[in-house]
């Protein structure tokens, strides 16, 4: 009797062997890792082009071994549209924060979704503007304190947090819309599945796929990383519920199964 050791978990190959600039416990790191794993699983690393946003993840293409380009703040879906139309055989991913996607880039977000562009949007919702030091974002929760809402967000003054998935679900064209989160290992597993599914759908030419990921920003929230993960669960999830809002390919498969 002897023991044989094998790797159960290995760093994904698509993740470059460099140290990221992210703060300790930042959700962007987890999402980069999952994205890199998904690229490996689907074997699409070489054909993928990622459009990086303005925000903390602005250097995304330095961490993941794929082709990438940088868009102006909020314009990633527009740039991704152009790239995909010019290079329809490439997998095009628009990676965005909440300030990028729902504030300065609301128009691009809505119209790319409405046109049903065959791209994948990975939306990192950390309830504030991380890169610039933690200002209020459209997704900041009611009463949440940020740099620009020091007494807590007051909905009389600044409205209520916008729910991106629900908003996009009112459109006809999107093929896949899901909200997931990073608050514990089980949730992280589900997040990975959602990213894989979205990329798979794009590969199959099913149309627009959108994955919203509730992520932690412990530095700007002013709490420890583990407390940040708990805060997602206790504060963010009640307002931003986990849900598959749209899954056209699965619905079609289910309907087809019934008919036959």
């Amino acid at each position: 009797m002897s023991t044989q050791n094998l790797h159960m978990y290995r760093r994904p190959e698509a993740l470059l062997n460099v140290r990221t600039h992210y703060c300790a416990g930042c959700g962007h790191g987890i999402i980069h890792k999952l994205f890199a794993e998904a690229l490996g699983e689907l074997n699409i690393r070489e054909e993928t082009i990622v459009v990086a946003p303005v925000g903390c993840s602005v250097l995304l293409y330095n961490y993941i071994n794929v082709d990438g380009l940088e868009a102006a703040h909020g314009r990633t879906p527009a740039v991704a549209t152009g790239v995909k139309r010019a290079q329809p055989n490439r997998i095009v991913v628009s990676y965005q924060g909440d300030g990028d996607l729902l504030a300065i880039g609301t128009g691009e977000t809505l119209h790319a979704a409405n046109r049903g562009e065959n791209i994948t949007v990975i939306f990192v919702n950390n309830a504030n503007y991380g890169m610039t030091g933690g200002q209020m974002a459209p997704t900041t929760l009611v009463d949440q304190r940020t740099l620009t809402s020091p007494k807590g967000r007051n909905p009389q003054e600044t409205g209520y947090p916008i729910r991106a998935c629900e908003l996009l679900s009112t459109l006809e064209a999107p093929a896949y819309i899901e909200r997931v989160s990073l608050h514990n290992p089980g949730a992280v597993k589900k997040t990975k599945k959602a990213i894989v599914k979205a990329l798979q759908y794009q590969k199959e030419g099913r149309g627009y796929s959108f994955v919203e990921i509730l992520s932690m920003c412990p530095t700007n929230w002013g709490i420890e990383p583990a407390a940040g993960a708990d805060w997602i669960k206790t504060s963010m999830v009640p307002w931003f519920p986990h849900k598959v809002f749209r899954d056209r390919p699965a619905e079609a498969a289910a309907a087809g199964g019934k008919a036959s």
Binding site: M1, S2, T3, Q4, N5, L6, H7, M8, Y9, R10, R11, P12, L15, R19, T20, Y22, A24, G25, C26, G27, H28, G29, I30, K33, N184, P185, V188, K189, A229
Partner: peptide, 24 residues
């Protein structure tokens, strides 16, 4: 117990898990 919880949560992919298996 090689559950992988630590490697799933690690934002820096700093943890790899090796599974020990008895053979023979």
């Amino acid at each position: 117990i090689a559950c992988g919880a630590c490697s799933l949560m690690c934002p820096d992919a700093a943890i790899e898990i090796i599974l020990k298996r008895e053979v023979g």
